[in-house]
């Protein structure tokens, strides 16, 4: 059974704007799925429809076999949502926010407190349970929304930019947390603008642009499509003149840094052979761009050019 099945989903907002123009997405049970796209692509709109916050104009949505039109309660019971914008009561204590959410799902108060404790502890917020939510920092507020989304143990967790504005240490611990949750069987859909995050966490990916899916595949297959990778090399000694290497072209960034593209038929070994031949010492190297980022930019750009024609 698929965790999520979306067919020909369309959304026209009241002002006439067409945010989704026939979207198909399939997410398998147990998957860690990335839904990527530039600002305004329609990610939050799609997530809003799946979680009943936005009315669809047409199309089909199925979550773990429950049809959104015929069995909305079945759909809702399966989903935990971490929305993009803060949407909790700023004048309510943190503990109560989580417990009340559990209550809305029908979990009795005693059991709700037990679960709230577990999920607040996991996200390092239990000590603050009596504080008003408005006193939390931005990163803590995001974690509060994750704790709230997990309290009814959803089969499908949807995270709309959960790591936006979260510092690197906490972001790392959130990655570990999400991976662990996924290992234990929770299907996860993640949207993010940090593409290295999607690359390292997700197994499948869909890219949406201007209301249309432009890519829907396995992450490894997609990354395989990348023909060239660009590296930045830090040199031991400054170069006065750029040597001509066989098969590679160096580009000077400044005195001690050069950039070089390696295509999929070449190897980094070959590059270093050439560099040694010319007695160029390299102290370190890094990818100029994250691989997914490069693909993403290519795709969005070609879609834009396509639209312009």
């Amino acid at each position: 059974m698929n965790a999520l099945n979306i067919r020909d989903l369309r959304k026209v907002y009241k002002n006439g704007f067409e945010a989704l123009k026939g979207v198909d997405i399939t997410v398998q049970q147990g998957d860690f799925f990335a839904l990527l796209g530039p600002n305004g692509a329609g990610k939050s709109t799609a997530i809003g429809i799946i979680s009943s916050l936005v009315n669809k104009t047409s199309g089909h949505v199925e979550v773990f076999g429950h049809d959104l039109d015929n069995d909305p309660e079945g759909v809702k019971s399966c989903i935990g949502l971490v929305p993009q914008e803060f949407n909790f009561n700023m004048w309510e204590p943190i503990g109560e926010i989580v417990v009340n959410q559990a209550g809305f799902y029908g979990i009795p108060r005693k059991e709700a407190w037990r679960r709230a404790e577990a999920s607040l502890r996991q996200l390092d917020l239990w000590d603050k349970r009596q504080q008003m939510s408005r006193t939390l920092s931005g990163g803590m507020k995001r974690r509060l929304m994750i704790a709230r989304a997990l309290v009814h143990r959803p089969k499908l967790l949807i995270l709309d930019e959960p790591t936006a504005g979260v510092d690197i240490e906490i972001r790392r611990s959130m990655w570990e947390f999400m991976s662990e949750l996924n290992r234990q069987g929770t299907t996860i859909i993640l949207t993010t603008h940090y593409l290295e995050e999607a690359e390292s966490l997700c197994r499948n990916i869909a890219i949406i642009n201007q209301g249309r899916i432009v890519e829907h595949s396995r992450m490894d297959r997609l990354l395989h499509q990348l023909h060239t990778e660009t590296f930045v090399l830090n040199l031991r000694d400054p170069l006065n003149e750029l040597p001509s290497l066989q098969g590679f072209e160096l580009k000077r960034l400044d005195g001690q840094r050069v950039e070089v593209a390696v295509n999929s038929e070449q190897s980094i070994n070959q590059l270093f052979e050439q560099l040694s031949l010319h007695e160029i010492g390299v102290t370190s190297l890094r990818n100029k761009q994250n691989r997914l980022e490069q693909l993403f930019m290519n795709m969005v750009e070609s879609a834009r050019n396509g639209a312009a024609q």
Partner: peptide
Amino acid sequence: SKFQRHVEELIISPV
């Protein structure tokens, strides 16, 4: 609850 958007907590729940 509309203004602060926490009405969404109810809308997404199976109530």
